[in-house]
Design a binder for these strands. Structure first.
Lengths: 334, 334
DNA sequence: TTGTATGCGTTATCAT
DNA sequence: ATGATAACGCATACAA
């Protein structure tokens, strides 16, 4: 492994000049540049990033931290983010962590080691943010969860209005004549799931539809989680005519479960999902679902973080409007 | 951000002693340990990994490098690997790179910066391996592609026998009475796809089934790639009765495409996939597919790399037997 | 334009 | 058991 010293020795120049060539500094003669670059090429020299970052007070990257690496929705959101950031010619590093890892701790490690100019969090709730980042001044954006409770001027957030969207999904089912409605997926620790559920429950109450905890079955964010939850719900309430799945992956598991009960979607049971992932439109039948506007979400996130990296500005918390994708999994009962 | 120096000053001990406490070295008094740990806790001190790795000649981690981060098959393989490595109490770091990135270059960077004890590659073909790792002695395992061509005693590989598996899939269709068979997915740069295709073509030739390049349509490893390829194939050969998709994601896209042509799977057209991902068993109808034994594959990979990390041993190249998952997407035409 | 010297936060090797 | 210090690879301020 060649180091900068080796390159210096081999090229006949000093490490100072070599360093300047590596980092494309001006004040260096063409001759020196050519000679040094030749040696670098020949030796297959790679600068040691550890040594490099140790010196730097701030790098030029934005770090994206993704919580829950099997989440297809985040994948699509990530793609959008990357293309937005590419356009702005902004370097990014991506870090994945487990669904029950501590995203703030991870971020702090990255902060210490890589000194990114900003953070974008996909998922997570940023608890104990202040504990770690008490005297840091890096702008962050939290996506899909609200950051108001973080109470930190450096943390913005863009979210879908889960409460309203949950209510909307239920109203959509009601408009199609459903009165026996179940809800599946999520867990008490997930803010997003809780809000969607709360919105759904409130809307049912408002419309005088009977709904109690037996009509809700939690489950992991996976196909299997959806299958299992649907199974439980179906054994408890065989008479339901519609189900609101708190995520598309869950809906897809439910679809399969319903089929295995010799029932038809949407004739016997209607299903509405949440997220609007690609896969939903490859399902048979195509999934009806609440679409989170990932394009707008990532645009806003990119703009905001780019802006706040340069100018000091207060954090903002915004709700992005959702839409409905009318697939083929909701039947009209009227 | 507190450094080891601050901790030393605040605790009244020297940085040497602090370092010993951090790294759980023996020769340190209980008293010093307690005092120092208290300060570390209070200051929320995190060692700077850059400085740490700069000193270390070798870390204790195994690096897993995944090429193509939207590949569901790799996700499931990764899960298996992680549980195997967890069992062996082996620390791992995971790195993703784009489908058309250079996995060897990435690995070399990681090698220089993190000095892992071993590499596991998911996907990729390790071209130019020797160019980068000429005098490194890190054991590696390549999964899903064969490493014989790498010709390096440090690189093992475990693969499904794609050639035989491709032939097997075709024979399965022939056994069910199909004689007009198309193949979709993959590209000329993918070894795996090439082998599966070659196996398929050979088997058709052997069984005197007519097959030329118009019966094959390449495509990206995605739902959309499958949809598009199927669409093209169908317009070229509306009379085919069966399709071999070179990956499950591609098969799922094809399923949707066939449906959109008002055709039924499997009545009008049969579909067989490759990989055996979870999602396939949530499809409607359940996907018939070639299952790659990811459990065995990851067990072997783990054993081999753990072994070779400790004893010097030649690389091995092994084929893992595949199986068929008999779903509901292949009809009997006889 | 180029070279030299210092320091970044750690670990490890000496002493003590 | 503990402290002092060299060394890791690099960037940079300063000197030449």
């Amino acid at each position: 492994m060649a180091t900068i010293k080796d390159i210096a020795k081999l090229s006949g120049y000093s490490i100072g000049t070599v360093s300047r060539v590596i980092n494309h500094h001006p004040d260096v003669s063409e001759k020196a540049k050519d000679a040094i670059e030749k040696v670098i090429e020949k030796e297959n020299y790679q600068p040691n990033a550890n040594a490099k970052f140790m010196k730097l007070k701030a790098s030029n990257i934005i770090a994206i931290i993704i919580k829950g690496y099997a989440n297809m929705f985040f994948f699509e959101l990530l793609e959008q983010l990357q293309s937005s950031l590419d356009e702005a010619e902004q370097e990014v590093s991506i870090y994945y962590l487990d669904e029950d890892g501590d995203e703030v701790e991870t971020a702090y490690h990255i902060y210490v080691e890589k000194k990114p100019k900003g953070f974008i969090f996909l998922g997570g709730s940023l608890e104990h943010y202040d504990q770690y980042f008490k005297d840091a001044d890096v702008p962050s954006v939290l996506l899909t969860n609200d950051a108001k409770h973080v109470q930190n001027p450096y943390v913005s957030s863009y979210t879908t209005d889960n409460l309203r969207a949950g209510a909307f999904a239920i109203q959509y089912l009601i408009d199609h004549g459903h009165t026996q409605i179940g809800v599946i997926g999520g867990n008490p620790h997930s803010h997003t799931a809780n809000d969607r559920l709360a919105g759904a429950a409130k809307q049912m109450q408002k419309q005088k539809i009977y709904f109690d905890e037996t009509y809700y079955e939690p489950g992991r964010y996976s196909f299997d989680g959806g299958y299992t939850a649907m199974n439980t719900l179906l054994s408890r309430h065989p008479d339901i005519t519609a189900v609101f799945a708190l995520a598309d992956t869950i809906a897809i598991g439910a679809l399969r479960c319903i089929k295995d009960h010799q029932l038809d979607v949407p004739k016997d049971i209607s299903v509405i999902g949440f997220d609007g992932i690609d896969l939903g439109q490859y399902c048979i039948p195509r999934l009806t679902t609440i679409y989170q506007d990932i394009e707008k979400m990532s645009k806003k996130a990119t703009e905001n973080i780019l802006l706040r990296m340069n100018y000091h500005k207060a954090a903002e918390y915004e709700c992005i409007p959702f839409e409905i994708i009318q697939g083929k999994t909701v039947a009209n009962r009227k």
